[in-house]
């Protein structure tokens, strides 16, 4: 068995999601290869060489992989696929864009967003916003799997590079798509998916100003990432990419503090696997208290500054 992992990277460096996928691959068993496809991405490939358990790093470096568009990336992977029994990617926006396209090119099913490996052909994945867990078995010769990053530990990184990246022949530029802009949120905080502590705010904060003024000092103190419920994002309190839930980010930090979030099932889907959940809400009947470990009922405008001061 051999497993190919599509690396998550930004050319200049490797993203942490890749490490969690390596751990998932280790549970399947077999030789682990990592594909770094990008433009001027050799630094990311060298970083991939330092992941414990990785036997080979394939480097596809070409200008038509800048932006890592799904069309060219899937075509490249299509040409590599026959050497592998499994192809894995993180269930990130990039992995979710590319892998189903590859699956259709290979005429195989894809198993999305796995949270456990039962055997090399059987995986556990949440359905219905995490309200059910399905164990599914694939009969396809090549298993295509996206991995819920928060469900697997990160593999060790930083071993002295035992392997060097192997440059591979690049695929054609299909010329189907062109990226004309990209705006990334500028933040010095940890990324939502990788943060040990997440502070999330909801509609209860009532305004963008409150959202920032109340949550940021608490997040600063705990070195936390900031997330939000859909209601808070729809109200314009914070940027879209902060959304936690069924269709947003899935997080499972050591500590999740939900502030002024009612706890719709779609939101809970994105945070229910957190180790410790604290909820602060003025409504004692809010559904968030059904998933919380510790609940505090009261005026968040008073309680949040109090909590920040007490830590």
């Amino acid at each position: 068995m051999a497993i190919l992992i599509l690396a998550e990277h930004d050319d200049g460096g490797l993203k942490s999601e890749t490490l969690n996928v390596v751990t998932a691959a280790g549970k399947i068993g077999g030789e682990i290869h990592v594909l770094v496809a990008g433009s001027a991405c050799s630094a990311a490939a060298r970083a991939a060489c330092q992941i414990a358990g990785v036997v080979k790093v394939l480097l596809a470096d070409a200008t038509h992989y800048a932006g890592q568009g799904a069309e060219n990336t899937a075509a490249l992977m299509h040409s590599l696929a026959s050497a592998y029994t499994h192809i894995l990617a993180p269930a990130s926006s990039h992995g979710k864009d590319v892998l189903p396209r590859l699956a259709a090119l290979l005429d195989v099913a894809q198993i999305s967003d796995i949270v456990a490996v039962a055997s090399p052909d059987t995986f556990v994945r949440p359905i219905y916003a995490g309200n059910a867990l399905a164990t599914v078995q694939s009969a396809d010769a090549i298993k295509l799997v996206t991995v819920r990053v928060s469900a697997f530990e990160a593999a060790e990184q930083g071993r002295s590079a035992a392997v060097e990246p192997t440059s591979i022949a690049c695929g054609p530029d299909l010329g189907l798509s062109r990226r004309i802009g990209r705006e990334m949120s500028q933040s010095t905080r940890p990324e939502l998916g990788a943060a040990k502590v997440v502070i999330a705010g909801g509609r209860g904060l009532a305004s963008a100003e409150n959202f920032h003024n109340l949550l940021e000092p608490l997040a600063d103190k705990l070195g936390a990432a900031i997330g939000a419920s859909r209601a808070a994002i729809d109200a314009g309190f914070v940027a879209n990419d902060c959304q936690i839930g069924q269709t947003g980010k899935i997080v499972a930090p050591q500590l999740f503090i939900a502030i002024g979030i009612s706890g719709a099932i779609q939101h809970v889907a994105g945070m229910r696997e957190s180790k410790v959940i604290v909820a602060i809400n003025k409504d004692p009947d809010a559904p968030i208290f059904q998933v919380a470990d510790f609940g505090l009922v009261g005026d968040l405008f008073k309680l949040v500054p109090e909590l920040t001061a007490a830590l």
Partner: peptide, 29 residues
């Protein structure tokens, strides 16, 4: 192409502990 072998409920979380104030919350975390 995929066979669903079983569907189960996710593990239930422990029942919530309601705390009276911030000090009690901090003690718990």
């Amino acid at each position: 192409r995929l066979t669903t072998l079983k569907v189960v409920e996710p593990l239930k979380r422990q029942a919530v502990v309601m705390v009276a104030d911030v000090a009690e919350l901090v003690a718990h975390i």
